[in-house]
Amino acid sequence: MIIGAGALGTGSAEMLVRAGIGKITIADRDYVEWSNLQRQQLYTEEEAEQRIPKAVAAKKRLTAINSEVEICCHVMDVSVEEMERLVEGVDLILDASDNFDIRMIINDISQKYQIPWIYSACVGSYGISYTILPGETPCLNCLLEKVPMGGITCDTVGIISPAVQMVLSFQISEALKILVEDRLHLRNKLISFDLWENHQSSINVDKIKREDCPSCGAERSYPYLSFSNQTKTAVLCGRDTVQIRPSQPIDRDLESLDKALSRQLGKVSRNPYLLSFSTAEHRLVIFKDGRVLIHGTKSIPEAKSLYHRYLG
């Protein structure tokens, strides 16, 4: 199962479908946009023009590539409930998402149902990947301890396609090893690289596994599957606005955010309490306590999509 059908999701789906995987499930909430075409390899100009949902466009192209593979695509904003449903019978979860909210949910689901998953991400010329095996390796919660506050995203600093392909090579090599049950050859290291700076590092993080981890430790509670730890959304009546509120209040550094966003988006206005900026069709207002108002939409999936696109 692949969560997300952006750059990583389209690339991994194409590799696995060409390899003749038996069944693949892909879930994504977004539609194809022009800016996606630089790296999201299953989509075309026509689909961007018509704003076709990514899951629909991906299924069409993947079926044309290999009609023998069973391809289940869901236009869906995946959260805990959806994940519980989708995960039945799944052998491996590939992370192709663009935010840590969903990754922490994937991580807890993986531990709860003992399904391996592969964390992968990239931005700019940088990429990172780690294979998580329940009961063996540390989990994402051991590694992170808290959900990282966003910062740079593919839409604020860009992404070069070779970084996507490099992460995919690491992720799918590991996926193939798991799927053919050759676990002896798994990398067992956290890998990261920067193709522009010519860095690569590969480190063993076994020592970071925590006995008291609430996701994979002895007394686990799967914190990210509970309602109180989820990001909350609400449509504000009559205002064509969606409010997104992080699970815990955060102290957002508006000054750095201003710097990051104004490089890419031009005019960003800011006062000590909030920051706001406009895209072609929407206006985002970000409060210091972490709340975000997205004006110009009543759709929660669309609002979440914009939230993660600009704030990580």
Partner: peptide
């Protein structure tokens, strides 16, 4: 020293 930071894009 090796420094690995986590990013979210994908």
């Amino acid at each position: 020293i090796e420094l690995v930071h986590f990013v979210g894009g994908g």
